[in-house]
Nucleic acid binder design. Structure first.
Length: 739
DNA sequence: TAACTGCTCTTTTTT
DNA sequence: AGAGCAGTTA
């Protein structure tokens, strides 16, 4: 019965069998973290006779949850994972809320608003409060509100503590936005995490029941939990105290989303009797890869010290690709992939190309297509975020929850029914007069004194909705969707439009339909429309992987967490791109952890690439090599032609004196203008100091922030009144000093 | 009401 | 460079 424990090393095994009381496992990259959790679940079920219904495992992605479930099934026997509570924080909490949210004044059929819906609602709130989008950007507001929610700060408290203008405005908007969400009977992503707390506080009996249920709680990627997640987990585990958390502070990359690294750093303060295990034996990567990763992460100050120990041979050095521009970078990545496949027998699925921002995927995609390399981009425009899908889904959402105003606005005039903004405004007024919802206003539009044409349009709309509702009562999701497509002729319209885009959209709707059919087959019981929608709302493109397909994976580094590939390309290693922004030292440390995550995904080979110039927001920029590259021991990094960096650096040092990598980029405009304008004679180059007022031919007036280097290599960082912050080579910038 | 046009802003990363 | 938006026109 304990045979499967032999697959584990001693520390792993000890962690698995320590089933009682709080346990923390610090698991370095590739040290068998998922293995420990899954074996522990299997051990609980098989050796300790725990019923699956009493085990809760929380993950951050659906993919991780799916994989865990799959592995438990493999470990025991098919179907063993039935009844297990395995899922993302968001989906498990949504499930809890579906059961009892009526206790805190929501309808159980609540809608889940994605960030687009939520942004639109924030925009509405701002309009009502007469706060212009120019004064405070919607994105900023959304970020502030989200952060507040995740820290479990209520509007009133946020308002009290608002220190600057943006926060003050955001706190006002937060209040109205929260009210509007409730009016819509909707929860945003953050609500899914914080509403359980509200529920538990108001109704302790709900909490008690759940505490009884969840005798064993396991949390993956604990370093990425935010305050709300931390609190709920703590409450749920308070009775049995069998809390088992796994994480790696070195892989904490979500602080921008409110993740609080101190949750893991302070675990032992919360649970004094906690057992701690450290997994540092790495089975994934070669010695050189680990060495490089260790080199880099040791530059961070705030960390739990642990050096990963390799279980594999040294392997090959890392390879540096230095490209002219982003296109060249992509081409050389493609070339390497082709060569390695042909000469060393790697399959397409062995390769992953990582980048810091989604925008970088475009060129890579182009080149892959040109070179006929099969590829898949993870998380570009999610299937569910496509307009046609969102429109169709909005109908489904609205059938269940007719207070969902966002959905209503999407579908009321789609397909076009000649109900425009003006009519909607009139309808709104009518609804407000009578204190009824917008949909009720539509149902009673005959009494509103509207033009007959509008009343007709509105009643044809409500007829569609009512018909669909009837179908939904005892029909499957598939049937509802089919009826929707028949009634509205949406697919037909797209087909007759017959443009390449409309045909793609048509295909997408067919895809949705077949997903619905799939779902209906697996969930034959009626009333599963809500479940279907929940899956859709909480799903993302990052989740699906089909083992059978053979393609190169393209994704952001964030999306790569938890995955592994034989060959990894880390692209765009340039200052201000990766690391992206470094206003604060902590932010730089997070970027470094992100780079660490990227490197530790690799099993055999790592390629690091950067481009000397790159298009960013439609402008070409000169780039500087990322400081991260220099943090790796130069004796294990070679160029494509096989020269080691250590040799090259030695030569360079002799030739031109040591130059350390410095920050920033120069604008191409500045460089090229200098060719025309000429360069000041060296002797007459003015001296720049911090605070010097200057004038630039293109950027206009500005102030020097700091000066780097001297002589021909001197650079100045300048904040321009109208052009923002730039770093310029003094030699080329042709700056005039303003007295 | 809907289509068109020029304008702005974008780019962090995800559930 | 490209998407999305507001404002304008048919």
């Amino acid at each position: 019965m304990t045979d499967f424990l032999n697959d584990l090393n001693e520390v792993q095994r000890n962690a698995v069998i320590a089933t009682t009381g709080p346990v923390m496992v610090l698991a370095g990259a590739g040290s068998g973290k998922t293995r420990v959790i899954t074996y522990r679940i299997a051990y609980l079920i098989r050796n300790e006779g725990v019923s699956p219904q009493n085990i809760l495992a929380l993950t951050f992605t659906n993919k991780a949850a799916g994989e865990m479930r799959h592995r438990v099934d493999t470990l025991l026997h098919q179907g063993s994972s039935r009844g297990l509570w395995i899922g993302t924080f968001h989906s498990i909490f949504a499930r809890i809320l579906r059961n009892s949210i009526d206790l805190i004044g929501y309808d159980k059929n609540f809608s889940i608003f994605d960030s687009e819906d939520s942004k639109s609602l924030i925009r509405q709130s701002m309009a009502e409060l007469n706060i212009s989008v120019e004064s405070v950007p919607v994105n900023t507001v959304q970020g502030l509100i989200s952060r507040a929610k995740n820290s479990f700060i209520l509007p009133s408290e946020f308002h009290r503590n608002a220190s600057d203008y943006n926060q003050q405005k955001a706190s006002q908007i937060y209040e109205l936005y929260a009210r509007k969400l409730k009016e819509n009977n909707a929860l945003d992503f953050d609500d899914l995490l914080i509403k359980p707390l509200e529920l538990f506080n108001a109704h302790p009996e709900v909490l008690q029941e759940l505490q009884e249920t969840f005798r064993y709680i396991m949390i993956d990627e604990y370093q990425d939990t935010n305050r709300a997640q931390y609190l709920v987990a703590k409450m749920l585990g308070a009775k049995h105290r069998n809390i088992f958390v796994v994480g790696d502070d070195a892989q904490s990359i979500y602080s921008w989303r409110g993740a609080d690294i101190s949750n893991i750093l302070n675990f032992q303060d919360d649970y004094h009797d906690a057992l701690t295990f450290k997994l540092v034996e790495n089975y994934r990567s070669t010695g050189n890869i680990l060495k490089a990763a260790n080199n880099v992460i040791s530059c961070n100050l705030r960390q739990i010290k642990k050096e990963l120990i390799s279980h594999r041979n040294e392997g090959e050095p890392l390879t540096l690709i230095e490209a002219y521009n982003e296109r060249n970078e992509a081409e050389r990545v493609g070339e390497q992939i082709r060569n390695l496949r042909l000469k060393q027998g790697f399959e397409f699925r062995s390769f992953a190309v990582f980048y810091r921002t989604n925008a970088q995927s475009r060129v890579l995609e182009d080149v892959m297509r040109q070179h006929k390399i099969p590829y898949k981009i993870f998380g570009s425009v999610s299937f569910y975020k496509r307009k046609e899908i969102k429109d169709a889904v909005a109908y489904l959402r609205f059938i269940l929850n007719d207070r969902d105003g966002e959905s209503l606005l999407r579908i009321i005039n789609f397909p076009p029914r000649k109900i425009g903004d003006v009519s909607i405004a009139k309808l709104r007024e009518f609804a407000e007069d009578r204190q009824i919802s917008l949909y009720e206003a539509i149902l009673h539009s005959g009494e509103g004194g509207f033009q007959p044409r509008l009343v007709n349009a509105l009643s044809s709309f409500s007829a569609v909705i009512e018909t669909l509702r009837k179908v939904a009562v005892d029909g499957t999701v598939y049937e509802v969707l089919t009826e929707l497509f028949t009634l509205t002729s949406i697919p037909l319209l797209l087909q007759t439009e017959n443009t390449p885009e409309s045909l793609v959209r048509y295909e997408n709707l067919q895809e949705l339909l077949s997903m619905a059919r799939d779902f209906s087959d697996h969930n034959p019981d009626t009333g599963s429309l809500g479940d279907f929608l929940e899956n859709i709302s909480l799903a993302s493109d990052y989740d699906e992987t089909q083992e059978s397909d053979n393609y190169v994976s393209l994704m952001t580094v964030h999306a790569a967490k938890g995955l592994e590939f034989p060959v990894v390309f880390i692209t765009g290693l340039e200052e201000r791109l990766f690391p992206l922004h470094c206003y604060e030292p902590e932010e730089l440390e997070e970027e470094r952890r992100l780079f660490y995550v990227a490197m530790t995904r690799a099993q055999e080979k790592i390629f690091l690439s950067w481009a000397q110039s790159r298009y960013q927001y439609g402008q070409q920029h000169h780039c500087l090599r990322s400081m991260f590259i220099g943090e790796i021991d130069a004796s294990i990094v070679q160029t494509e032609s096989g020269n080691f960096l250590s040799d090259r650096q030695a030569k360079e040092k002799v030739a031109s004196g040591f130059s350390s990598p410095s920050r920033g980029y120069q604008s191409k405009t500045a460089t090229s203008s200098s060719a025309v304008a000429g360069v000041l004679p060296k002797s007459s180059q003015p001296a720049f100091r911090e605070g010097t007022m200057v004038h630039h031919a293109v950027f206009g007036p500005g102030v020097v922030l700091d000066v780097q280097g001297s002589g021909a290599k001197q650079k100045v960082r300048i904040t321009f009144r109208n052009a923002g912050e730039k770093t310029l080579m003094v030699q080329y910038a042709n700056l005039r000093i303003q007295q």
